[in-house]
Every structure is written in structure tokens, then in C-alpha cells.
Simulated scan of single mutants.
Amino acid sequence: MIVRHLDDIRGSEREVETDNFISRRFILKSDGMGFSFHETIIKAGTDMFIWYANHVESVYCISGKGEIEVVGGETYPIEPGMLYALDGHEKHYLRAEQELRLMCVFNPALTGREVHDENGTYPILD
């Protein structure tokens, strides 16, 4: 059984911070669950291009306000209680009008140190 608390992750190697987000990674590839589970804080004013070419992701909004715009498709408001799943490797823009607190699941699982590359993609790391 795996038990972790947010306070144990803050400031540890399981927390990754960039100019746009803070990702707190509760479950990683090394945990052997087949997916990874994260709390992600998208900083207010962020406008990021993302393309998970190597992963699918499901995202549930806990707090904040923003939007996700699918390239060549629709734009959806993000607010508490909303879930979206990028099951087709959709290229998209993620925008945070207010700080967003999101709970995210990735498959395949992340190793823990990934950050977006120049294409907005997480690489597959071993």
C-alpha cells in the first residue's frame, strides 16, 4: 500500500516547478501502478501550448478558472468540478485566468522529472 501526504511532497524531488506550473507528483512510474497521479497548480496568467504526443492525460479541476483550447477545435471553460481527458493526443492551449488547482493522471506513468520540451511534450523517460 502506498500512502503519501501533500506536505511530504512539497519541496521534495516529487515537486517540479517552472515559470508556469508546480507539479506535485504523488504516484510515479517507480511506484508500479501503470499510471502517474499529480496535483498541478497552473499559475494565474499562464498561457501554455501543450501536446502530449507520448501520453494520455485526464484532468479534474479542484479550484480556479481558465480554459483549454484544442488546436483546430473547440475552447472549453475550466472551473471547479470540470474534467477533461486528452485521449487523442490533442494539441492544445491551457490558459489560467486565476490560479488553477488540477488533479491529473498520466498514462504511461511519468518518472517524476519531466518538463515540457520545445513542442509542449513530455518525453518518454526510463
Rank of each mutant, 00 (worst) to 15 (best):
I2W: 11
I2V: 10
H5G: 10
L6P: 08
L6T: 00
D7P: 06
D7Y: 12
I9F: 09
G11H: 04
G11P: 07
S12I: 08
S12P: 14
V16D: 04
T18M: 10
D19A: 13
N20L: 15
F21P: 07
I22V: 12
S23G: 10
R24C: 14
F26M: 15
I27N: 12
L28A: 11
K29P: 10
D31T: 00
G32L: 02
M33N: 08
F35Y: 09
S36D: 04
S36I: 08
F37L: 15
F37S: 12
E39V: 01
I42M: 15
T46S: 15
D47K: 15
M48I: 14
F49V: 12
I50S: 11
W51V: 13
W51N: 12
Y52E: 11
Y52M: 00
Y52L: 03
A53D: 04
V56P: 04
E57S: 06
V59L: 07
S63V: 00
G64I: 11
K65F: 07
K65V: 09
G66L: 13
G66I: 13
E67C: 05
I68E: 04
E69M: 05
V71C: 01
V71N: 05
V71I: 04
G72F: 01
G72M: 00
E79D: 09
P80G: 11
M82K: 13
M82Y: 04
L86D: 03
G88P: 01
H89R: 06
H89I: 00
A96D: 10
E99G: 02
R101A: 07
L102H: 05
M103H: 07
V105F: 09
F106N: 01
N107A: 14
P108W: 06
A109V: 05
T111H: 00
G112F: 07
R113I: 04
E114T: 01
V115E: 05
H116I: 10
N119I: 09
T121N: 03
T121L: 00
Y122W: 00
Y122K: 11
